[in-house]
């Protein structure tokens, strides 16, 4: 149905686009989790753009909603510290391991810190990853203070001139203020030793509009510098990340697409925007 009407528009030459076309595109944006406000804004504004097809006008407008900040990682010349945060079950530990593997395979020295001391066996999970990808892991006691693990890791990274330090943290719901302040403590303690280059917020691509609330809260607590969009290999489009880019100006930096350590790549804006309408 959608294909058919698109085809007709294309045959017609596309300048006059039926309103049903636009409402179908709006439906696609809504189903991609852009949220009603952003979706209707996109449609309204795209209508004003003279593109070959409504789809093209829309793509053009969508790309204007991407954050103006760089979508690349900003690493320091000495030790770059990356703090990975997010709510429960989004794939933080897996992303930490994938990120470590990415930098290791580009020839850098990498260290991981098992800062999730809360969830049962999370430390073991990261250690297992460490063995698989051959990256050392700094860990403390289970149920210990995550800030002290992070501090030890920062010290260790500094002393051994490690190029990339990636710190895993426990999943926490963004509306739990005590857990959020625990996170600021982790950040503060690390910053005593090393400046933090990146704070990456891991967002599950299946998340709906709540992703925006997560980004807002994490951003106001620990100054998120980029988003890791995980589980993009499913049927989901991850449109809430665009809403995060548009509303909070936080760029997506990485995309996770599977359970294997190589299913991970830097963000590709063109492919992402196209997939929203696919």
């Amino acid at each position: 149905m959608a294909l058919f009407t698109k085809l007709i528009t294309r045959i017609k030459g596309g300048t006059e686009s039926a309103s049903s076309d636009w409402s179908e595109l709006e439906a696609e944006l809504l189903q991609a989790d852009l949220g009603p406000a952003l979706a209707s804004e996109c449609i309204e504004q795209a209508k004003k753009i003279k593109g070959a097809t409504p789809e093209e006008s829309l793509l053009q407008f969508l790309s204007s909603k991407l954050s103006s900040k760089s979508h690349e990682m900003s690493l320091s010349s000495s030790t770059s510290t990356i703090l990975v945060v997010g709510v429960n079950g989004t794939g933080k530990t897996t992303s930490v391991a994938k990120l470590a593997r990415f930098y290791k395979s580009s020839g850098r020295s990498v260290l991981m810190a098992a800062g999730d001391t809360f969830r049962a066996a999370a430390v073991d999970q990261l250690k297992t990853w460490g063995e698989r990808i051959d990256v050392p892991v700094i860990s403390g006691q289970e149920n210990g203070d995550p800030a002290s693990v992070a501090f030890d890791a920062a010290k260790n990274a500094q002393e051994n001139n490690v190029e990339i330090l990636i710190i895993d943290t426990a999943g926490r719901l963004h509306n739990k203020s005590d857990l959020m302040s625990e996170l600021t403590k982790v950040k503060r303690v690390v910053e005593k030793t090393l400046p933090i280059s990146e704070v990456l917020l891991v967002i599950d691509a299946t998340t709906g509009q709540n992703g925006l609330a997560q980004a807002k809260m994490f951003s106001s607590t620990v100054d998120v510098t980029g988003v890791v969009l995980t589980k993009m290999d499913g049927s989901t489009k991850g449109g809430v990340a665009l809403a995060i880019e548009a509303e909070l100006g936080i760029p997506i930096k990485w995309v996770g697409t599977g359970e294997s350590e190589s299913d991970f790549s830097p963000f590709d804006p063109g492919a992402y925007l196209k997939s929203l309408l696919a």
Binding site: A32, D33, V87, G89, T207, G208, N210, G234, S235, V240
Partner: peptide
């Protein structure tokens, strides 16, 4: 199912 899931709830549940 995670209560924070978005529009993907339907295709996932159906699958």
């Amino acid at each position: 199912v995670d209560s924070m899931i978005g529009q993907d709830a339907v295709p996932t549940a159906q699958a």
